[in-house]
């Protein structure tokens, strides 16, 4: 179908966008890349009074390194993230996850901030932000506040953003030396939302696991940090037995939904298998084996 009528604004600066949000009192939607919102409008699943298009706000699009972190403007295109040499070098988990977000033609328009603010439970970026304790910077009438991934994702497609706030920047810690990464997911077709996805970043010191950062998508209303699996690796090391144990504990930690696409039992099974694969692949990379 076609979108219902709406009032349309496309400011070139952030301040007028904030003023418009305030004026519409929750009746306006921010339009970023539109790869989810325009589909919802075409289906008439949402009928906002107004759209505030942030695509012309140039200063919300950048990728930079600052204080040991990667900082990305919220309107940075997924395609720009995918091809950024800085992201590939300093945060390869983000680059690998990006290649799993939809298809290249949707990544041309889709933005990193849009995906995070949309908070689809099966999306890749929320899992990466959960695993790495990413930060999300919201701007509202009273200035900025910085939210941790844990507090940002509150429920099914629900975030801590207030109706008068805009996501302006997102931040992730850079990967340090002797770390490896992997994003594993299973979907019925290439480019679909994952049935289950697992983000992993593992740092080693000799045979020991210094830190393990793991999170799953598709197993609940929000991304799930796989803390028990992380503890297993950090305490018991990186033997095959320990990896298998961590994967089993990851699966135990999930309480996944059953739906048209997969039963809860199948999702739990996928969590175990994908966690095991993600840790193994991350570990191989941390040890310098090319995979």
């Amino acid at each position: 179908m076609k979108p219902p009528a709406f009032e349309y604004h496309d400011p070139v600066e952030l301040e007028p966008a904030l003023e418009l949000l305030r004026r519409y009192q929750g009746e306006a939607k921010i339009l970023a890349g539109g790869q989810s919102l325009l589909a919802l409008l075409n289906f008439r699943l949402t009928r906002p009074v107004a759209l505030i298009d942030v695509n012309r706000i140039r200063r919300l699009s950048y990728i930079k390194e600052q204080d040991g972190r990667l900082c990305l403007g919220a309107v940075t295109r997924q395609r720009a993230v995918e091809f950024s040499p800085l992201v590939r070098e300093k945060l390869p988990l983000l680059a690998e996850a990006t290649r799993l977000v939809g298809h290249l033609p949707t990544r041309t328009r889709g933005t990193i901030g849009g995906s995070l603010a949309h908070a689809d439970p099966a999306a890749e970026y929320p899992a990466v932000f959960s695993a790495l304790d990413g930060e999300l910077v919201a701007r509202g009438p009273n200035g900025e506040r910085v939210l941790g991934a844990r507090e940002f994702f509150q429920g099914l497609m629900t975030t801590a953003l207030a109706p008068d706030e805009v996501l302006v920047e997102v931040r992730l810690p850079l990967m340090t030396a002797q770390c490896g990464w992997a994003f594993e997911e299973f979907s019925r077709r290439q480019g679909d939302f994952a049935i289950v996805g697992v983000a992993a970043q593992v740092c080693v010191v000799g045979e020991r696991c210094k830190t393990a950062r793991l999170a799953a998508a598709g197993v609940g209303p929000t991304p799930l940090r796989l803390e028990r699996a992380e503890q297993t690796l950090e305490q018991d090391g990186l033997s095959e037995r320990s990896i298998a144990e961590a994967a089993a504990r990851a699966a135990e930690q999930t309480e996944p939904p059953s739906d048209l696409h997969a039963t809860a039992q199948y999702r739990r099974h996928l969590t175990r298998v994908l966690t095991q694969r993600a840790i193994s692949r991350a570990l191989a990379r941390a040890r310098g084996e090319r995979r």
């Binding site: 979108p3 539109g34 325009l38 589909a39 075409n42 298009d53 033609p105 949707t106």
Partner: peptide, 15 residues
């Protein structure tokens, strides 16, 4: 769109 493939059903003409 500006040399990169994109879905024209997920863009508004005004954009």
């Amino acid at each position: 769109v500006n040399g990169e493939a994109a879905r024209s059903c997920l863009m508004l003409a005004v954009q």
